[in-house]
Write a protein that binds this DNA or RNA. Sequence first.
DNA 1: GGAATTCCGACCGAATTCGTCGGGATTGAG
DNA 2: CTCAATCCCGACGAATTCGGTCGGAATTCC
Lengths: 142, 142
Amino acid sequence: MVQLGRRYGTGPSSLAEIALDEDLPRAYLEQLVTSLRDAGLVVSTRGAHGGYELGAPPSEIRMSDVLRALEGPIAPMICATDDPAHLLGCDRSARCTVNVLWVRVRDAISGTLDSMTLADLVPARNITLDPRDPTASPAGVA
Amino acid sequence: MVQLGRRYGTGPSSLAEIALDEDLPRAYLEQLVTSLRDAGLVVSTRGAHGGYELGAPPSEIRMSDVLRALEGPIAPMICATDDPAHLLGCDRSARCTVNVLWVRVRDAISGTLDSMTLADLVPARNITLDPRDPTASPAGVA
DNA sequence: GGAATTCCGACCGAATTCGTCGGGATTGAG
DNA sequence: CTCAATCCCGACGAATTCGGTCGGAATTCC
């Protein structure tokens, strides 16, 4: 996702490209990106010169959504899951007093994840040190 | 731990007792409690009529310490571990920009865990619904 | 038509988790 | 002293998950 963030706006990038940059097996990336596509976070273009690109600007992609797409509902324990559909009460739920702890932990996690977007993780392409310098350009100026 | 919390101040409790209340295999509890003892959270008394009891009042036992004793350092990812000793830099650490996210998540988790003590999880023994009702009784009244 | 690419589903080895087992060491009670 | 209750220890085991592989079918551009 960070790689796709860097390339945002430059058309689809092939998995081969990303695999190279990130030094990960292409086949594995394929698996990951499939989940991201199903979640609508990336869009795919098939055929030659196809590839993947972000479905929205990096600043609008919450990391909580990325993580949910890749790893399922946010849940430190089965009894404290994000997704009500997967809320599977353990047999102990009656006596168990620990649930409140896990719920707080979960909220802490999703809170921080909600507060970060992909833009927070994509390395800036150019850094304007002097605020009076208007030549600080929107990326990709060759 | 919650069970030991309930029994706090009443002398050592045997694993058999707790196993019964909690409906968990004694042999398994044994394994867990060993870690807790090594961490100093519970103290053991050997021999007949021995058992385990908390090493401090419930309100002074932070849940972060309990979790660390049972599950090791708090770390959503290997590259964002609590315990500097286990900080094992992944080979990607140079290029990887995601670390900051995991560190924030980790801090959120340990923050909430630090803020809760065992006392927060031990069910109160008597609940006075009407402050004028002095018959609200200490648990277990048949 | 052929090359580049996504798409799909099955498979696999290693690690972790939850739990078991058997027996040894220590201590209080009779 | 002996016995029963209990902690103590280390090894074992089955199920699940995780990171990753493999082979090939479908799609699109040149």
